[in-house]
Design a protein around this nucleic acid. Sequence first.
DNA 1: TATAGTTGTCTATATCAATAGACAAATTTC
DNA 2: GAAATTTGTCTATTGATATAGACAACTATA
Lengths: 248, 248
Amino acid sequence: MSGLASSIERRNGVSLWRQIADKILQGIASGDFAENAALPPEIALAERYGVNRHTVRSAIAALVQEGVLKAEQGRGTFVLSRKRLSYPIGARTRFSTGLQGQTSERHIALLSSSTEPASRRVAEALGIAKGAAVIRLETRGEADGHAVSRATTWFDAKRFVGIEAAMAETGSITASLKRFGVNDYLRHSTVLSARHADADDLAALDLQPGAIVLVTVAVNVTLDGEPIQFAESRFPAERVELRLSAGY
Amino acid sequence: MSGLASSIERRNGVSLWRQIADKILQGIASGDFAENAALPPEIALAERYGVNRHTVRSAIAALVQEGVLKAEQGRGTFVLSRKRLSYPIGARTRFSTGLQGQTSERHIALLSSSTEPASRRVAEALGIAKGAAVIRLETRGEADGHAVSRATTWFDAKRFVGIEAAMAETGSITASLKRFGVNDYLRHSTVLSARHADADDLAALDLQPGAIVLVTVAVNVTLDGEPIQFAESRFPAERVELRLSAGY
DNA sequence: TATAGTTGTCTATATCAATAGACAAATTTC
DNA sequence: GAAATTTGTCTATTGATATAGACAACTATA
């Protein structure tokens, strides 16, 4: 790889400094720029990307703001360790077990909950009538104090009365479902896409505007094949990658 | 759902018109804006997103350029049918079988090929020594005349001598591997991420600058577990979604 | 045919983004 | 201590971005 000389596009709606900030992030993720080491000097980066030094400085300023880089006058600009989390995704993946070994502290925070009529999409996924009551949970996944996911989850309101309370108490979907007699469940289907983060995601995931999120839309079912949960999760692409293992 | 009022961020490196173009694309994908129907008038969109009408016009102009919308003076602006391709991904997925039923014509075009020493990443994936010769193929997947993927693939040069010729001839990885005695293979692991498209992707996938690509990095193995192929594929997020089915 | 609704074009203005050059301030190296 | 290297600050200029308002051109409908 090492996508060198893969140049920069002008007048496209994305400013040069943001594009270069993205390139530097890629460079860190791919190992081109080692962690805890100095970045090439600004003049070298400007030459490398074919832009003015001040443009590089804007990119660096944004990454310093994000906490990815640290600039020291006279010495250089340094890469703070910020490895991407690798988030396994598969039939039996749960949030807490997924990141085992990569982080020390992780849980799901319940941001808000509400009951609403099912949209067509939700109704079809859960196998209930359109307009039937569903419980919607807005949650944020956290690992080591950093937000790593932002999800919207729907349950059949009739079958899972009070699951929002269980969720707030336990901080775990799996534990909450157990209270309703669901001891095991499988991921039935997942659809993956990507887009720019919207204002909601930006705030919840502590991202800079323009950031990209990976989006998964999944249906979980019991071992009998009964759909119990429909969820859309957003992951910050700069901090998380999704891994599909063979044993899916 | 229906992320209404999820507002717009200013001075972040991404211009307002590009953010609004993204929102309109989302709206089409989510069904907020029906295909073949008229978009709300420019003034309504401007109010909805809290920007000037001219800014909305810039966004629409970009999407007209991309072929997503069609504006007609006096009548309105219309959504051209442009559904996302749903690309299945799993242990036994091949490009040609994957899109069956969704498109009529599909094949892989070989853009270029070369022999090079294996980087650390490639060597580890293929289980060969770093620096050993590998064949690199640059390909583009096409469906119905539209580019839907852009991939870089590596093979052990010793084991797959001349695979680039087979690839150019057959337009299929599966058929090419058959010539080397590989009648079946499995996807061993896949890592998923997303980023802004670089200049290469933009040209090959016919994207507008600022577009997002889904990135998969995969290792394919024979039934015996021998790694034979390492590939990084880029999919345009606005045209393709990846689907993981239960039967993975 | 008249009117309302919608897209297209034009002018003007203010701010952001990018380039350019010069020099200050801090650190490292000789 | 002097020189070289690197980040920080300042001024100036150009082009892209965003807002504002007015009006033309076209379409559909009453």
